[in-house]
Amino acid sequence: MYGFDYHAPQSLSEATALLAQHGAAAKPLAGGTDLILHLKERRLKPRHLVDLKRIPGLDHLTAEGSELRVGAVVPLRALERAIAGDELLQATVGAGLRQMKSPTLRNRATLGGVLANADVTADLLPPLLALGTTVALHGPGGDRVLPLDEFLLGASRTALGAGEILREVTIPRVAGGRGFFQRLGLKRVGGPPLVIVAGVLVPGPEGGVARASLVAGAVGPRPARLPQVEQILLAARPAVSGIEQAAAAGAGEAGAVSDLWATKEYRQEILEVLLRRGLQAALGTGGDR
């Protein structure tokens, strides 16, 4: 493996000082499931690894009131347990989590690691975006809070500045919300997703929806909201009458691209199918499976 110095700071200020001091030569270390592999393959060559797991205040998980606050180094397994009894979070975040193979990897990999990686194909990102997740960052200039939507800039690119670390993730509990997660992967088990769609809908008067938040992932450089789809659903009475039109609009607006695994046209077609299925499931019309 590539040679580096390991540091285990005991406080947030010590960690940011180390990161600031070494600049681009330093990398935060969380679960290491991605970073240590990169070091072995020499795809990354940081001179310093700054372990975040000994820092008090980064490993809390509180599920009080209207939101879930998750410290950056909380393993995915703990998040899975914390949302076990919550139907909406199960249908969205839980479904995304279970796609991360293997289950034992989730004992080590952290929520902060998933977000900081900003992998285009990460199954967890669309559900978190649909729920309106925010992230708290800590850096040499102090603290700031960003919507996840502004934190994710593109493929493997985030808003994290020099010396900045992701401190906490806040996942709102959307009262009365119904959610879904749909995915088509290259293989039945494991393998990269070709299309992911996640959504959160809040039922409103006259069979309509009062809030709609739909996100497509793995189709373009970053997961993105589908505002046209949302508008169609918000306007439809009852909401189910808008499903066909919404699904067709989604296929066009997601900015699907062609790559090694699938063409743009294939992704658009799958997106339409997955959107229809997800909306039917969330709006309670049964639907095809």
Binding site: Y6, A8, G31, G32, T33, I36, L37, L49, D51, K53, R77, T104, L105, N107, R108
Partner: peptide, 13 residues
């Protein structure tokens, strides 16, 4: 007590 991949963990951790 928790199963983890020892190939992806540093001894120093």
């Amino acid at each position: 007590g928790v199963p983890m991949h020892s190939c992806l963990i540093l001894a120093a951790e």
